[in-house]
Write a protein that binds this DNA or RNA. Structure first.
Lengths: 148, 148
DNA sequence: AATTTAATGCAACATTATTGCAATAAATTC
DNA sequence: GAATTTATTGCAATAATGTTGCATTAAATT
């Protein structure tokens, strides 16, 4: 398992203690976590605003993804594309590419997200005139095994 | 264009003035609207809590869909499946069926949703053990023609 | 070491949505 | 059709999530 320290070392991005701690948590977790869930895993005195700001910074710099839950909270996960892509590739763009489809399951009861790695939908993407494409989100909703 | 009055007449659902007004607005609009947008289209004195409650009621009874925006707001649209399905079909279930895939475009700038009626993805849906399926959401994100 | 720049911590604020409860409207029973 | 029961509405208060302002601290640069 890659650590946040080696990840930051490979980039020109500035590491701080807070960023390393937050990134480590997301690296360790197989599913997107809410701000609240991440805060619980951080040291007791970790400031919640600092967490919000660091999550926004990580998002802006392409290290993580963000998805909006049915429960109005946002959920965050490591951008594996960023981690896998090499330095050369990354340095050619300010923001890491983020346009592949990665499906999730979202529990309508507990709000948790789960990654569905086996879903690879095929379709023709046609947008109205002058609409600009960025990403696609495919979310399956229902009840997770613990909530049924 | 079907009116909310005829829609309610075809069901056993109780119509109130407020429900008819809200439903009429959603019937007239081709794209999902936020609570705020709907409130603006209603008479000035329409209570915002009543709108929240009516939207939740319409959702529970299957007349509308709800999607969560990137902006943490919820957007509402008429459930065309409900409207098209006949009385017999509807009365056999308390909640109208809602498991077809209907794709949307979500503008990352203004937050507006647009329906993408031409997208029909094909994929095999495999969920982890004991997960219960309800609906699928496919959302394309980017900038709409007015925000680029 | 001095200076500039960026990050943090705390308080206040913003937005969206829900809950409690009295008042009103609608449906049901007699 | 009046009396009773049930559901809905309107207003105030509260909840949950997230952002902004600003002084302090830490980090990077000169």
């Amino acid at each position: 398992m890659k650590t946040s320290q080696t990840l930051f070392n490979q980039t020109k991005l500035k590491a701080t203690q807070a960023r390393l701690e937050v990134t480590d948590i997301l690296l360790k977790n197989p599913r997107p976590l809410s701000h609240q869930e991440i805060l619980k895993k951080l040291p007791q005195n970790f400031d919640r605003v600092t967490l919000y700001r660091n999550l926004n910074w990580l998002l802006k710099n392409g290290l993580i993804h963000r998805i909006s839950g049915e429960d109005r909270a946002r959920y965050f996960e490591i951008n594996h594309q960023f981690i896998q892509s090499n330095e050369k590739y990354r340095s050619s763009r300010k923001i890491a590419p983020d346009n592949h489809l990665h499906a999730h399951f979202n529990c309508q009861n507990c709000g948790k997200f789960f990654c569905l790695d086996d879903i690879h939908p095929k379709f023709k993407l046609e947008l109205p005139p002058k609409f600009i494409f960025d990403t696609i989100e495919l979310t399956v909703k229902g009840k997770c095994s613990r909530c049924q």
